[in-house]
Nucleic acid binder design. Structure first.
Lengths: 336, 336
DNA sequence: TTGTATGCGTTATCAA
DNA sequence: TTGATAACGCATACAA
């Protein structure tokens, strides 16, 4: 490994001068700077990040903390979208991104804050974290900048980011209503998730606005899982055959629902119309292509990183940012 | 930030003793160790990775270098599978994973080797890198441990990992042949990619083995892209209407082909049978579900990390490892 | 069992 | 315009 010391020796100057030349300070004579740069290049000098970070007391690193990175977890591509959006922004401001999962935290008995401190991380974005996670409170109330995806929060150096889930869900259900559906079921996510309450509220709102009776039995929780949704949909449609349309709180759950519907010898959209949520890449390739509420996870990751940087640089930042969503019409809904 | 110095002061011992206690050395009396640990916990002590890395001269970090992390690039989930497999193994050996993309490299004018040295990285896995990438040669011939996915290489501290693409392709095409197809087209990947040559070889082999004439015009390159494949498939099938089956060198290309076929007013599999490659999550949800050659990218990432660690710890490692593949039969192929 | 002293590679302060 | 020197937080060889 070649260090500034080596370069200094070869150039016949002090390490200070080398450091200044390398960092492009202007109090180095052009000639020595040139010499030093040339030597550095020839010898393949590369600065040592650890040393830099140590002395500079910061790291230029952002963390993304995910609930899981398991073998089967990535089908929806959400984590990927987040990561790539975040990475892309970070890159423009010369930051790096490191990954951390909740399962790692548990295994290593390490809290998110510990991890971040240990790595001298500037800020973190959290996704899929449960609010009853033992370490959740700690990181939110710490002064470490963090942005929470889909979870509201107040707290210094904390920002939340999401779409307006209530409005989006309301629109989705109203779209169903506009196709003359009245008996509309909802396949909701995890019961404890904040978004589940919000999306149900939107569902309710749409029905109420159109003078449709809200039947609580029409809503079931399916844990955001394809499998659970498959089971729950079967149950729901079997016990309530009057249902003609389903609002699913995630596309992956919609996939499970569709399978259930087919096994019930019913057709989408002729017998049952279905609208999803998220607009994951998969949804456009389904048959029929899934009508859904599109979220832009890339943008979400991008915006998260941007907020984080504002917090880090002590700029003014939004306490909660709402991104736009869009209803994308495809083929899974029919008029009654 | 609380350091070992603070703890030393509070405990009334030297920093050396603190360091030893924290690292669980056995030449510290039980009582002082206990005291130190207690203080560390109370004060929320967290070791500083930069300092540790600096003094230990290593980082316990692996890198994954990807060709891109763009907004639209992740549909196939391959990068995700690789990353998650790698991450999972790294976790078990207390390593971390950092991400780097070729576009970043270009933007920052930084070679992969520079990046790795700068970050004190123990080893890297490369995916989707082109062999004509200006920095490719450098990293392969450097002594930095690296494993290449889908690219053969010889060189010290270098290992390659893939499935047997020739055999896998041969099996795929033979599967088509066993369904009585004789005029079989191939939608290949990027012309310059090593795997493209291999997969074509397998295609050829299968035909020759069954005394079927190889028509070079039946093979087109589609750059592993859905869009290009869509265009090329249209061209191919229009100019060669005698073709009854297609072997696509990736599932994403198969998706493009299917769209082309439909627009040609043809049906899969009745008019055209189609077999893909990769078994991305999407393929099982297509209609008809896509028959394909399954690769396990999670395992590939996992195995890559494992090889890397062997190189780092100077154990004996495989110069090239072949993972198993599997033909998964679904609904996109019919008997003639 | 504990402490002193040194060094890892870099930046920053101050003086020359 | 340059150079000594200290400092960042930690681990370790050596001494006590």
């Amino acid at each position: 490994m070649v260090t500034i010391k080596d370069i200094a020796r070869e150039a016949g100057v002090s390490i200070t001068t080398v450091s200044r030349a390398l960092n492009n300070y202007d109090d180095v004579s052009a000639s020595t700077k040139e010499l030093i740069l040339k030597i550095a290049k020839n010898r393949g000098y590369v600065p040592n990040r650890s040393a830099q970070n140590l002395v500079k007391q910061k790291n230029n690193t952002l963390a993304i903390i995910l609930s899981g990175l398991e073998k089967e977890g990535g089908k929806d591509n959400i984590a990927y979208g987040l990561l790539s959006g975040m990475y892309t922004y970070a890159e423009t401001v010369n930051y790096e991104v490191v990954l951390f999962t909740t399962s790692t935290a548990q295994q290593k008995q390490k809290t998110y804050v510990q991890f971040c401190r240990e790595h001298n991380i500037g800020g973190a974005v959290l996704h899929g974290i449960r609010t009853d996670d033992p370490y959740f409170e700690e990181i939110v109330s710490s002064d470490l900048p963090c942005v929470l995806i889909d979870i509201k929060t107040e707290g210094k150096n904390t920002s939340s980011i999401s779409i307006d889930n209530i409005e989006a869900s309301k629109e989705a259900v109203e779209y169903l209503i506009s196709h003359n559906h009245r008996n509309i079921g909802m396949i909701n996510g995890r019961q404890e998730a904040a978004v589940s309450a919000e999306r149900y509220k939107g569902y309710e709102k749409a029905l109420v606005n159109h003078n449709i009776l809200v039947n609580p039995q029409y809503m079931v929780y399916a844990d955001f899982s394809e499998e659970v949704s498959y089971v729950k949909t079967k149950e729901l449609l079997s016990s309530h055959p009057e249902i003609t349309a389903l609002f699913c709180a995630s596309d992956m759950m919609a996939v499970g629902s569709i399978r259930a519907i087919e096994e019930l010898k019913l057709k989408v959209p002729n017998d049952i119309s279905i609208i999803g949520f998220d607009n994951i890449p998969l949804s456009q390739y389904l048959t029929p292509a899934l009508t859904t509420v599109a979220q832009d996870f890339y943008q979400m990751g991008n915006e998260s990183a941007k907020q984080l940087l504002k917090m880090i640089t002590k700029e003014k930042y939004e306490n909660s940012v709402y991104l736009s969503y869009k209803l994308v019409e495809r083929k899974s809904i029919s008029m009654i």
